[in-house]
Amino acid sequence: MGRRLEEFLAGCRDEAPLQLGVIPFGMLYGIGALAVGMPVWLAQLTSMLVFAGAAQLVIVQMLGAAAGVLPIGLTAVLLNLRHMLYSASVAEHVRHLPRRWRVLLAYLLTDEAYAVAILRYARPTGPGPDLRHWYFLGCGLTLWGCWQLSTALGIAFGARIPPEWDIDFAVPLTFIALLTLLVKERAGQAAALVAALAVLALAALPYRLGLVLAIVLGLLAGAAVARRGEGGDERG
């Protein structure tokens, strides 16, 4: 087996368990989109255009609350701003690739694909050229396929799933699992803790602005703790 295919399949394999959290999320979106009156074609097209679970669920939720087109768009854009920071985080690893690769990987850069791919970039590559972008592609395409499929499933069968199964609870469980994988040091713990507390403190803010602000506050807390840690090392 070629090393490209090997990396690609390893990416697919490592991304696969996360789909247990992604599929209910996608189905939930598909169910909700139809419930708030989106045409079927548009519900599916949105999963391709926006391809961002949290933002799509917020869009559906706000459409259901009869919010205006401008506040909905603004909220979704604010929520997706975090992808710019993912972009910055992976940039050093994909900067050398041809443009078509960077466009493709940028399109596939979601929460769950980022979380798995960045862990691969944290491990050194084997001998020979760096083929870790194939791993990234495996992560991204696995997630993309599952997202489209689960949207379609939600549209097709969603209404028949009993709400008492609480399949949507798999969503926060996924975030919790990812958190423990990502948070290994004090600065990351501070970022997570401050963001979680801030989101509760800011819950009353309109348009889910509290979520975006809480994430920013978490980032600042993480950066502050990291800097203090560095300072300590220098003095010691």
């Binding site: 975090r82 920071l85 993912y86 910055a88 985080s89 929460d111 980022y114 979380a115 960045i118 975030f175 919790i176 990812l178 958190l179 990502l182 948070v183 600065a187 990351g188 713990q189 970022a191 997570a192 803790l193 401050v194 963001a195 979680a196 801030a198 989101v199 979520l211 809480a214 994430i215 978490g218 980032l219 993480g222 950066a223 990291a226």
Partner: peptide, 11 residues
Amino acid sequence: CRHIAPASFAA
């Protein structure tokens, strides 16, 4: 950037 993922997922 190093903390965007933990902060987002926690929030």
